[in-house]
Design a protein around this nucleic acid. Structure first.
Lengths: 250, 250
DNA sequence: GCTAGTGCACTGGTCGGACCAGTAGGCTAC
DNA sequence: GTAGCCTACTGGTCCGACCAGTGCACTAGC
């Protein structure tokens, strides 16, 4: 016979209550990006807590990327528009403490990027298609300009595609993981053999993908994009782990 | 001619320095999960900052899921093993403030889950295959037991698959997004028409997927899983948005 | 001798007050 | 009318204090 079901009471700290209330106000839209929170001294009155408690709450909210405070600002903390910064931070942490391999990260990109391309092939506007072509043109021009320009144009291409795919979650996740991958291999990048050949090949691949997108052949575009990413990154992945990447090639 | 390249100096607060140092120690492995940080009073000596500053740093580290502190604990804060809690938090925030639609979330699951299944079809062990079959058996048994048991068995199935796929990032992301989706539709779930038919259909689909995995036919298994997820969730997605989901069906 | 119980020394959580450097905007002096 | 100062705020940091917990060593009782 089970008696009255008591719920475990976890001791909830004062600053957590403050965090919850402010968080709720932001997520419900009662506070919009750009608006200001009351000053810390005002908040301590409203919440009936000390300033230390208010400040600990604000630190948490700041760590979650919801607000930002600036010393000397005559207004209170500013409510920020959503940025994937917190997502980025926790994924980076994940990558470090869980020791995610480069193979896993690249595989993740192959999956999500090709999905975005599949969707983009069906949903893209003509304008977006032109943007993609322009980005690839800039990649080609960057052959003369150097690594950074090439990389920037490449990022621009993938951003247009992700946007055209219409799924914000995919868009943000690809973006976050891409930056992690880029940082991981940036040091290896300089000393890599035959960078220029790799870049030329990458450009060809991108052009093939665009052609498939133009024809609205999503599955083909997706397949080509996976192949492109594999060819581009396989050299940086230990040979033993390349098998799991090839599993995604048709 | 560009002179010496000065970097912008952003004012770095004291507590941020503390966060960085502790974070580095954890991520580099100098501090392992289960180990203890020095007490707050000890940390204020080591870092030469006040206790308030130490505490703000600890709040940030706690928000990132790296440490936990318990009142009265004679030891310092405990270094935690990685949990996707922070990732979960930021994705949930993303879902709320960016107003991710259920369609986007389900689409994301279709993509990642089918990728995991594709990989699992090639990499799974016989033992994992048996686990999958057992999970589906429990789903069938749960027809008598109710919604919760069914859902739990379903989760177990997808967890085995994700594990068998061998990509921790995919595994964690599917897990996080699944819980968000589940919470989103949990209220609609009770009043849904013809739940039992949906559950029976879902079981059939799962069995088809297992069959394909058993035959190591990854692409088939992946396709079937996308179809399964579409059929299961389409009813909860506004008709106007179902098109983008169907774009993933072959 | 061993065990059960009691303090004690420590922990984190919270509070209040204080000072500093920085900012914005009103005010004053030119 | 404008340039420059002044003031009233802001957040960042520090300090000292108190409280309610916790674990452990020590002690009193068997």
């Amino acid at each position: 016979m089970s008696g009255p079901r008591f719920e475990p009471v976890r001791a909830v700290r004062a600053y957590e209550r403050v965090v919850e209330q402010v968080e709720e106000a932001i997520e419900s839209g009662a506070l919009s990006p750009g608006e200001r929170l009351p000053s810390e001294r005002e908040l301590m009155v409203q919440f009936s807590v000390s300033r230390s408690t208010v400040r600990e709450a604000l630190r948490v909210l700041q760590a979650r990327g919801l607000v930002r405070s600036r010393p000397g600002d005559p207004n209170g903390a500013e409510v920020l528009p959503f940025t994937p910064a917190a997502l980025h931070k926790s994924m980076t942490t994940l990558a470090r403490v869980e020791e995610l391999s480069l193979a896993e990260l690249v595989q993740f990109r192959m999956v999500l990027d090709s999905a975005a391309i599949l969707l983009a092939a069906r949903l893209r506007t003509d304008e977006q298609l032109a943007e993609m072509a322009e980005a690839v043109a800039r990649m080609r021009a960057a052959l003369e300009l150097g690594e950074d320009a090439f990389s920037a144009a490449d990022v621009a291409f993938h951003e247009v595609v992700a946007r055209a795919g219409g799924n914000k979650l995919i868009q943000i996740c690809t973006d976050v993981v891409r930056s992690i991958v880029v940082r991981l291999i940036s040091e290896k990048l300089a000393g890599a053999p035959d960078r220029e050949a790799l870049m030329r090949q990458s450009i060809r691949h991108h052009e093939e993908v665009i052609a498939a997108i133009r024809l609205a052949d999503g599955p083909l575009a997706a397949r080509l994009s996976r192949k492109a990413m594999y060819d581009y990154y396989a050299g940086y992945v230990p040979a033993a782990e390349r098998g799991v990447l090839r599993a995604l090639l048709d």
